[in-house]
Design a protein around this nucleic acid. Structure first.
Length: 155
DNA sequence: CGTGAGCGA
């Protein structure tokens, strides 16, 4: 009958593009009796297009570039790896980038490290987005001095 | 308190 059921606080997961969440121990048992599906649940858009650049998120604040490279180098040849850190603080922003030599290695790296643990945190690996052409010429609103050569983002 | 979404110098 009327049992004092605990309000499970209908937490509407404000899932982003990936639904990133600290699902460490929580298995995310979405078995709510009343959970109206969103307007969209028939389309599963890919996170990004295949590329050699990988975007790794969910990194621990103490995970560094070497740790990231060492972790992804087990699934392919990592050409480049970097953990994004702040310029003024110097601390990791919690995500990084890993560039493989080929697309197939990148795919293996994703399937091998996406959803895995790194430094005690679940990390997410996916293809990175294409970056702006980087105005190496002073003919654009570049907040940064054109003192950097061609970046990564090309295969 | 770098407690946590995201895409880099």
């Amino acid at each position: 009958m009327a049992m004092a059921m605990r309000l499970a606080a209908a937490r509407v997961a404000l899932a982003g593009p990936l639904g990133l969440r600290t699902a460490l121990f929580s298995t995310l048992t979405s078995s709510s009796p009343f959970v109206p599906p969103p307007t969209n649940q028939a389309e599963r858009p890919p996170p990004a297009e295949p590329s050699t650049n990988l975007f790794v998120s969910g990194l621990s604040k103490r995970t560094t570039t070497e740790g990231l490279r060492e972790a992804f180098a087990k699934f392919g040849e990592v050409v480049h790896a970097r953990v994004v850190t702040d310029r003024v603080s110097g601390y990791s922003k919690g995500f990084g980038f890993v560039k493989y030599a080929t697309i197939e290695d990148a795919a293996e790296g994703i399937k091998g490290m996406d959803g895995k643990f790194l430094d005690g945190w679940v990390i997410f690996a996916e293809y990175a987005r294409p970056r702006p052409p980087l105005p190496v010429n002073n003919a654009g609103p570049s907040p940064y001095p054109p003192a950097y050569g061609s970046p990564y983002g090309r295969q």
